[in-house]
Design a protein around this nucleic acid. Structure first.
Length: 468
DNA sequence: TGAAATGTTGGGGCG
DNA sequence: ACGCCCCAACATTTC
C-alpha cells in the first residue's frame, strides 16, 4: 500500500459537490480523493435508467466532472458490476477508505451492505452518509416500528423527530488522487439518443447540473415562492420549482432546499406547502424502502384482481402521443414527450385518464413515464402512479376520477397551456378549446377516443368487482 | 390533490 | 299578499 493512502468517494444519486457529506468527509479527513461514478445496469440492483433519464445522466456526469475539475479533481467513470468495479478501483488507487451517500432500494442496500462488509474485512474504512433524504426511512416509524401509512401522520412525525442536518459547505479544493487511473469517456456509454435524436426539446428545456439547480432554487425563492400555493396548480404558469430532475440525480439536496426555504422571508402558508412536497418525496421513499416492488406490485393486494382491459395498443399509443382528443391530456403528454417533464397537476389528470377512462393497468403508464421523464424516480414515479390508481398507501380513493375537461376549465381557464402544446388547437379561444369537438378551426384534431361519462361509469363498475 | 347526483334554500317572475 | 314554479347557489351524499 502506498505511503500516502487515498480515499474513494463513490457517487451514485448525489451528483453534486455542494452539501455532499460523503465528499466533504473524504476531503476533510482522507485526502487525496478519487471521485468515482459506476454505470451499473444490473436490474437486480437498481432499475436501469429510462431514455430521458439517460440523457440527463450524460449531462449531469459532465457537469459533475466540471465542478470537480474546478476544485482540482476529476470524475472517474467506469462501467460494470459495482461489486467488482468498486474494489478494483480501490486497489488501483491504493485507497484505504471509501465514502458514499446512502441508497434506499432493496437491491441497492443489499449491495452496499455486502460491499461495506467485504471492504471492512479487508481493513478499509467505509463510511456512509445521509445525503439524499431529510429523514432516513428507518427513523420515521410508529411505536411498533412499522412505517406510516398516512402521509400527514408521517410528515408530522418526521418533522417532530428532528431537524434535518445542516448543509455541509461546498469544498473549495481537493487533492486529486486519480493520477494514473483510467476513466471511460462518457460518450462511449451511449446515454444520448442517436436515431431518432429526440433530445432536442430536452436540451431546450433543461440545463442539467448543480449550478443550474442552485440558480433555479434561488430564482424560485425570490420570485415564485410567495404565490406557490395557487400558482403551482396552473400548468400554464411556471409556478412550480421544476427542481425535480435536479433532485432525482442529487444535483441539489433536499437539505439545501429545506434550509433556504426556512431562511426565506416569504410569509403565509406557501413555504410550508413547498416543504410538504418535499415531505411527499420522503413519504414515497419510506414506502419504497418497505415495498421494493413498488413499481410492479399493487401495495393493496385486492388490486391484483382488478379487471384491466385487454391490451389495447391503439389506445395506449393515442395516450402516449397525445392524440386522445382530450385537450388537457394531449397537452400534457406532448409536453412530456417534448421536454421530458410534465406539470404535476397534469400528471394526475393524464394518469387518471389512462387508468380510469382507458382502464389500462397503471403499470403501463408508470413504465412510459419511467422512459420519458427526466425526473423518473424509482420511489416517486411508482408511488404517485399507485396514488392515482388507488392501489397505494394513503392513495386517492379509486372513485376519485378526474374529468379532463373540468380540470382543464378549472386550472387552465384561458387555455394557454393547451394552446402552447397542441398546435392544432392554437387558434381556438377559451371556452371552445376545452371541448373542441365541433369547434371551427380544430383541424385534424381527433374526436375524444372515449366517452368520459360512459367510461367513468365502467371504471366504477370494474372497481366494484374487487371490493369486498 | 374529484365529480356527479341528489337535496335544500331562497330570490324573483308571474298569475 | 299569496302560491307556484323555476333555477341558481350551496350543501350533502354517493361513487
Amino acid at each position: 500500500m502506498p505511503e500516502k493512502s487515498s480515499s474513494v468517494v463513490w457517487f451514485r444519486n448525489d451528483l453534486r459537490i455542494d452539501d455532499n457529506p460523503a465528499l466533504r468527509a473524504a476531503i476533510d479527513h482522507h485526502q487525496p480523493v478519487v471521485a468515482l461514478y459506476i454505470l451499473d445496469e444490473d436490474p437486480s440492483v437498481a432499475r436501469p435508467h429510462g431514455g430521458a433519464s439517460r440523457w440527463w445522466l450524460h449531462h449531469s456526469l459532465q457537469a459533475l466532472d466540471e465542478r470537480l475539475r474546478h476544485i482540482g479533481g476529476r470524475l472517474i467513470l467506469r462501467s460494470g458490476s459495482s461489486a467488482e468495479v468498486l474494489p478494483k478501483v480501490i486497489r488501483e488507487a491504493g485507497a484505504d477508505a471509501v465514502f458514499w451517500n446512502r441508497r434506499y432500494g432493496r437491491g441497492e442496500r443489499d449491495q452496499d451492505a455486502a460491499l461495506k462488509k467485504s471492504l471492512r474485512d479487508e481493513g478499509l474504512e467505509v463510511t456512509s452518509f445521509a445525503g439524499t433524504l431529510l429523514y432516513e426511512p428507518w427513523t420515521v416509524t410508529k411505536d411498533d416500528d412499522s412505517g406510516y401509512a398516512v402521509f400527514s401522520a408521517f410528515w408530522r412525525a418526521a418533522q417532530a423527530s428532528a431537524h434535518p442536518r445542516e448543509v455541509v459547505a461546498t469544498p473549495r479544493s481537493l487533492d486529486d488522487g486519480s493520477t494514473g487511473l483510467d476513466s471511460d469517456d462518457v460518450a462511449s456509454w451511449k446515454l444520448l439518443p442517436t436515431e431518432p435524436d429526440w433530445a432536442g426539446g430536452l436540451a431546450e428545456a433543461w440545463d442539467p447540473g448543480e449550478q443550474a439547480a442552485l440558480k433555479r432554487l434561488r430564482e424560485f425563492l425570490a420570485n415564485d415562492l410567495a404565490d406557490y400555493g395557487e400558482a403551482r396548480d396552473r400548468p400554464a404558469e411556471d409556478g412550480t420549482t421544476r427542481l425535480s430532475p435536479h433532485l432525482r440525480f442529487g444535483e441539489i439536496s433536499p437539505h439545501r432546499i429545506w434550509h433556504e426555504v426556512h431562511e426565506s422571508k416569504v410569509g403565509g402558508s406557501a413555504p410550508e406547502r413547498l416543504l410538504s412536497e418535499l415531505g411527499w418525496r420522503e413519504f414515497n421513499y419510506s414506502l419504497y424502502y418497505r415495498h421494493d416492488k413498488i413499481s410492479e406490485a399493487n401495495i393493496k393486494p385486492e388490486f391484483d384482481d382488478f379487471p384491466w382491459k385487454k391490451p389495447d395498443p391503439e389506445a395506449m399509443r393515442a395516450w402516449q402521443k397525445g392524440r386522445t382528443g382530450l385537450p388537457l391530456v394531449d397537452a400534457g403528454m406532448r409536453q412530456l414527450w417534448r421536454t421530458g417533464w410534465m406539470h404535476n397537476r397534469v400528471r394526475m389528470v393524464t394518469a387518471s385518464f389512462l387508468i380510469k377512462n382507458l382502464l389500462i393497468d397503471w403499470r403501463e403508464g408508470e413504465q412510459w413515464f419511467w422512459d420519458t421523464l427526466v425526473d423518473a424516480d424509482p420511489a416517486n414515479n411508482a408511488a404517485n402512479w399507485q396514488w392515482v390508481a388507488g392501489s397505494g398507501v394513503d392513495a386517492a380513493p379509486f372513485f376519485r376520477v378526474f374529468n379532463p375537461v373540468t380540470q382543464s376549465k378549472k386550472f387552465d381557464p384561458a387555455g394557454a397551456y393547451i394552446r402552447h402544446w397542441v398546435e392544432e388547437l392554437a387558434e381556438l379561444e377559451a371556452p371552445a378549446i376545452h371541448e373542441p369537438t365541433d369547434a371551427l378551426g380544430a383541424e385534424e384534431y381527433p374526436e375524444p377516443i372515449v366517452d368520459l361519462k360512459k367510461t367513468r361509469a365502467e371504471a366504477l363498475d370494474a372497481f366494484a368487482t374487487i371490493k369486498r
